[in-house]
Write a protein that binds this DNA or RNA. Structure first.
Lengths: 364, 364
DNA sequence: CACAGTTACGGTAGCGCTACCAAATGGGGT
DNA sequence: ACCCCATTTGGTAGCGCTACCGTAACTGTG
């Protein structure tokens, strides 16, 4: 009665399916992985046997035998900010219906941590890697270049991707919001931010370049820049301190003191923009007439605020989704796709910067 | 020159480590998995060999040989809402430094999908399961009960957990917010919600029970209840429509029309609470004097709003974090922990319900 | 009919690890 | 001296799958 040793867990194996279908195990394997290699009749017989036995392939055995896995490594710098929650949502939506598995790594905005996680993930021979940003350090970049699997950088754009980049230009987005504020009639435009990563810096560069070109650049209206590795609690329920609305209220107050002529701010993110709005409410500053406010990312709440809040829509969900779709195409053997995909951004002009009154008929 | 067939990828195996350390492969295996089984000297020799060769265990082979994996399945009903982003953040923080891997599944608030995902995950013999809510259907529950691995339900509480439950009582939270609104002096208290899950329903039940006891229950002030499986876009960048602030503005307008005496609302979530706040701003209704607003979850933005917004703090990050810690204790052989862990909630009384003026000295 | 080329299927031998059993060692009691 | 038991180490035989190679049958060409 040797019906399987105690090392098995009783689940049917490919051999059981093969026996039932009256074929070799390897044929079942082929029928499952690439049905075109197997004749129509046999395929049908095998499919029936699979269904009758309720057979599910053992992914570990498959990975062990084939070296290659179905795991896609996804590296994000943070889970605290909604940005990367949206990205991950796109990623998970993108893998729906495929056999890919997602392995998420959190770099905590640290290059060293990123390097460590890349090494760790690549050792597991993933099917592919999706990684946020284009500012990996040289060692990380070298590892990814020689990884032998698709590597997709997201949420930024560059002329020189490791492999494929899908995202948008933060610099251009910064320029665009500057143009919008200038067109709306603001003349003393500031910038509010907490800790800045390379993408934030890109937006600020776009803003300052555009302001300089317009002869409106005033360094006193830029929040002191904080970069480097963010100091924050890793294991803590609280949010990262640099992006809080409370922080924004303090920062905008500082700027108003530095130069009271300030009549608009671009905020590094929507949450800070709301903080600024609430500070204006408290001070009795009228938005948008006395003061314009623009955010970045265009979270839901911006549209519903009163006044509705101008923001720059960033393709967060799309980045994750398109990255996975590109990955799937590559894994299916289609190497022809573009290596640089610009998903663009959109300035969502709303009430909080509508000094010119174009939207006055609509709700503000 | 048969230095490894072409089927290997050149990485050192446990046999390489064993050769170098001059011991048997199985001893290396033991030294890595449970060092206490190996003598001090050998352990040191083996550790050195591991380091020199830069050996990394092949998790697939380990899983195949031992049936057991290091994968923890985590099921959440949604990734769209920040709630479960926070939970996942806690989960990922909790596994930091362990060898556990996280596999996330999104049930999209569907019992059938949940059942399917549970089956799929259990077939992979996970180390454990973490699952949101306590309202699994009977088949799901049966599967989990016979899974043979720790199962931790989170974000709700029950007397009858499948295995372990870590969360808080939504019913009590609903009662608490009702008490707070009554104490603040409101008399016509409403409830605004979009689509409701079982936890939302628990909060509403707590609210209505408390209102009835106070003789203040008025069904006209309750948004028509929408339950069942939510109709929403799975593969779409947009948010689920039922929880938007725009929706909340419409819903609160409807309630005001149904009974203009309404002087406060409890909102099913913070985002809707902000929507209501913005609607009040537009209509010139003074908060909190004419109208009180309370939300649920206590996202960051609530504290920074103007007026600052009352909400109920829910232990989202903590649920994920504590669930993983409990899981790790169980996997380390400690079966003695409590099976029901109430993480509690906290009513964060702020300006938006401070009709009594107790906070007037502080910023509102 | 011989031949090469193609298609369809199967057998064997692992992938890297660990469960299981066995063996060697050391110490304490009789 | 003996045995017994606990501790430490090793050998063997898989786990379930697929890469690789082989065989058999078919096709078209001269």
């Amino acid at each position: 009665m040797d019906l399987g040793s105690r090392r098995t867990d009783g689940r049917p194996t490919i051999a059981d399916v093969a026996r039932r279908a009256g074929v070799g195990a390897i044929t079942v394997s082929r029928a499952l992985r690439d049905p075109s290699q197997v004749s129509e009749t046999l395929r049908r017989t095998i499919d029936d046997a699979v269904r009758e036995l309720n057979y599910v392939p053992n992914l570990n055995a498959r990975a062990l035998a084939s070296i290659r896995t179905d795991v896609v490594g996804v590296l994000v710098p943070s889970l605290t900010q909604n940005i990367f929650s949206d990205v991950l949502r796109g990623v998970y939506d993108g893998v729906d219906g495929s056999n890919l598995q997602i392995q998420v790594g959190n770099t905590h905005y640290s290059e060293d941590e990123e390097e460590r996680l890349i090494g760790q993930m690549l050792r597991q021979k993933p099917a592919g890697m999706i990684i946020s940003g284009t500012d990996q350090n040289p060692r990380s970049r070298a590892m990814l270049e020689s990884a032998g699997c698709p590597v997709i950088q997201i949420m930024d754009i560059t002329d020189d991707p490791i492999d494929t980049v899908i995202g948008f230009s933060h610099y251009e987005a910064g320029r665009a919001i500057a143009r919008h504020l200038i067109e709306a009639g603001y003349r003393h435009i500031g910038f509010v931010s907490g800790w800045m990563n390379s993408r934030s810096l890109g937006r600020l560069a776009g803003l300052t370049d555009a302001l300089k070109e317009a002869g409106m650049y005033n360094p006193k209206l830029i929040t002191p820049i904080v970069t480097g590795e963010p100091v924050h609690e890793r294991k803590h329920p609280g949010k990262i301190s640099f992006a809080t609305p409370v922080g924004a209220r303090k920062l905008v107050s500082d700027l108003l003191e530095a130069d009271p002529r300030m009549d608009a701010v671009f905020c590094n993110n929507d949450i800070m923009a709301l903080g600024v709005l609430f500070e204006c409410m408290k001070r009795g500053i009228r938005v948008p007439d006395d003061f314009g406010i623009a955010g970045f990312n265009d979270f839901d709440i911006m549209e519903a605020a009163h006044p509705s809040m101008t923001s720059v829509h960033s393709p967060r969900w799309e980045s994750g989704y398109e990255a996975v779709l590109a990955m799937r195409r590559r894994l299916d053997g289609d190497d022809g796709g573009p290596r640089i995909v610009d998903l663009g951004y959109r300035v969502m002009a709303r009430g909080s910067t509508d000094r010119a009154g174009r939207l006055r008929s609509i709700e503000r």
